[in-house]
Design a protein around this nucleic acid. Structure first.
Length: 417
DNA sequence: TGACGTCAAGATCCG
DNA sequence: CGGATCTTGACGTCA
C-alpha cells in the first residue's frame, strides 16, 4: 500500500517547476529550465523520502516542450548524471513514480498528425522514465481518447495504434477511465484484447458510469487482474468532487472521513492510491498518517507545520489540538485532521489573522531591519482597513523568515495555505 | 466558438 | 518598486 500525489509540492522550498512559452523556447532557455526542473524534482524526491511517500507522479512539464520538435536538446544525455542520481534515490527508497500525459495526447485520433504527436509524446514520457533508470513498474497513464461518433470504431483505432508503439513504451503504458467518454467497462474491454493494465479512477467513474451496475469494489477487483507481477501493484486514482465547483473539479483537500470510508471498503489493500487533489503532498501525508502508518510520532511534526495557520483561523481550534497532542495516549489521527479540516473551512477572521501574524512577528522582529519593521506595521494597518489581503502580510513575514533562515518557520504551512 | 484542465509566465494596473 | 489580478499559452475534443 502506498499513497501518493501528483506533480508539485506545497510548502517545499526550491521545488517549483519552471516553464516557457514557444516564443522563448531557445536551446539555452530549454537547457536552463531542464536543469532547474530536474533540481526541483530531486528536491521533491528527497521530500518524499523524508515523509515516507512512496508514490509520486512526475509532471509532464518537467522537460519544456518535451515532445515538440522545437526542443532539440539531448537532455537524457546532457543531464545523465542528474538523472542517474535522482533515479537511484527513487529506487533506493522503493518509491514508485509515474507520468500522465493529459487530455490532449490522443492516440486514437482521426487525424494522422495528431496520432503522430501522441506517439512522440508517449516516447518522450518513456525516455524520461528510462533516463531515470526506473523499471517498468513505473508507469505512463493514458486515457483512451476521442469517440468521434463511433465508440466501437474508435476503440479499434486505439488498439491498432497502441500496437504501433515500441515495446518499451507498451511495457509502461496503463489506461484509465475518463469522465466523459470511456467508462471503466470500456477500458476493461480494451484491456481484455491488449493486456494493458487498467487504472480505476473513482471520480471519473462516478461521473461516467458504465451501463453495467457494479459496486466500486467489484470494478476495482476486475481491474486488479489486469496488473501482472512485472507491472507492480494495482494502481488507482482517488479524488473527491470540489463542492460547488463544476463536476469533475478536484477538491482543495481530501476530507479524511470520506477517504477512510473508501479505504476501509477496499478489498485489496495491496494497492497504490494516487490522490488527485489541490493540496497535493499535504493530503497525501494526511491519508498516510491516518490510514497507513502508526502516526503518533509523526503527528507532532505535522503540528509544528500547521499550528500558526490554525491559530490564524481560530484560537479555539489551536488550543484544542494543542491539548489533544499532549494527551498522547488518546491521540487519534482522524480527529487531528478533522480539526485541521475545520480550520480550512472557516471563513477568514481578521482578529485571528492579526493575532497569528503578530505572534510570528514577535519571533521574526528580533533580527529584522527597520525597513522590514516599518513595512510590517504598515501592512497590519492596511490589512485591518482592508487595504490589502492577509496574503500580502504573510508574504512579507515569509520574506523576513527566509532572509533570516529561520528553518523552523520556513516550512510552516501558515505561509502556503 | 467556447469550455474543459493545468499552472507558471507574462502583462497590466495600482499605490 | 512590490504586489494584486487578470490573461495567455499549448495541447484536442465536443457541444
Amino acid at each position: 500500500m502506498a499513497i501518493g500525489y501528483a506533480c508539485i509540492t506545497i510548502g517545499v522550498q526550491n521545488a517549483g517547476l519552471s516553464r516557457c512559452i514557444l516564443k522563448n523556447a531557445t536551446e539555452d532557455n530549454i537547457r536552463a529550465i531542464t536543469r532547474s526542473n530536474l533540481s526541483a524534482l530531486e528536491t521533491m524526491v528527497e521530500y518524499n523520502i523524508r515523509n515516507d511517500i512512496k508514490l509520486f507522479r512526475i509532471s509532464s512539464d518537467i522537460i519544456p516542450f518535451g515532445s515538440h520538435p522545437i526542443n532539440e536538446v539531448h537532455w537524457w544525455a546532457e543531464f545523465k548524471e542528474m538523472f542517474t542520481r535522482i533515479g537511484e534515490k527513487i529506487s533506493a527508497a522503493e518509491m514508485r513514480v509515474s507520468m500522465h500525459p493529459g487530455q490532449y495526447t490522443v492516440l486514437n485520433a482521426t487525424e494522422p498528425r495528431i496520432v503522430q504527436n501522441a506517439i512522440e509524446d508517449l516516447k518522450y514520457h518513456g525516455a524520461f522514465l528510462k533516463a531515470l533508470g526506473v523499471d517498468q513498474k513505473n508507469k505512463i497513464v493514458l486515457h483512451i481518447g476521442g469517440v468521434y461518433g463511433d465508440k466501437a470504431k474508435s476503440t479499434k483505432v486505439f488498439i491498432k495504434n497502441y500496437l504501433l508503439l515500441p515495446q518499451s513504451i507498451r511495457n509502461r503504458l496503463v489506461i484509465e477511465n475518463d469522465d466523459k467518454n470511456y467508462t471503466i467497462q470500456d477500458v476493461l474491454e480494451i484491456s481484455k484484447e491488449t493486456n494493458i493494465p487498467v487504472i480505476f479512477d473513482n471520480l471519473h467513474h462516478q461521473l461516467n458510469p458504465p451501463m453495467e451496475k457494479l459496486s466500486d469494489g467489484k470494478w476495482m477487483a476486475a481491474c486488479s487482474s489486469t496488473w501482472k507481477g512485472y507491472d507492480g501493484k494495482q494502481k488507482i486514482h482517488y479524488s473527491q468532487q470540489k463542492v460547488g465547483a463544476s463536476s469533475g473539479a478536484h477538491s482543495d483537500t481530501v476530507l479524511i472521513q470520506q477517504f477512510l470510508d473508501f479505504y476501509r471498503n477496499l478489498g485489496n489493500k495491496e494497492i497504490d492510491i494516487m490522490l488527485e487533489v489541490k493540496d497535493k503532498n499535504l493530503s497525501a501525508i494526511k491519508c498516510i498518517n491516518t490510514a497507513v502508518l502508526d502516526i503518533s510520532a509523526k503527528l507532532f511534526e505535522e503540528w509544528v507545520r500547521y499550528k500558526y495557520f490554525v491559530l490564524s483561523r481560530s484560537e479555539r481550534l489551536y488550543n484544542e489540538i494543542d491539548q489533544m497532542l499532549n494527551l498522547k495516549d488518546e491521540l487519534v489521527a482522524k480527529e487531528f485532521y478533522e480539526r485541521l479540516e475545520q480550520a480550512y473551512l472557516l471563513p477568514e477572521d481578521m482578529e485571528a489573522e492579526v493575532n497569528a501574524a503578530q505572534l510570528l512577528w514577535s519571533y521574526v522582529s528580533q533580527e529584522c531591519s527597520s525597513a522590514e519593521k516599518k513595512r510590517f506595521e504598515k501592512l497590519v494597518l492596511a490589512y485591518k482597513t482592508r487595504a490589502c489581503t492577509v496574503r500580502t502580510l504573510k508574504n512579507h513575514l515569509l520574506k523576513c523568515v527566509l532572509r533570516q533562515e529561520m528553518d523552523y518557520l520556513t516550512n510552516s504551512l501558515y505561509f502556503y495555505i
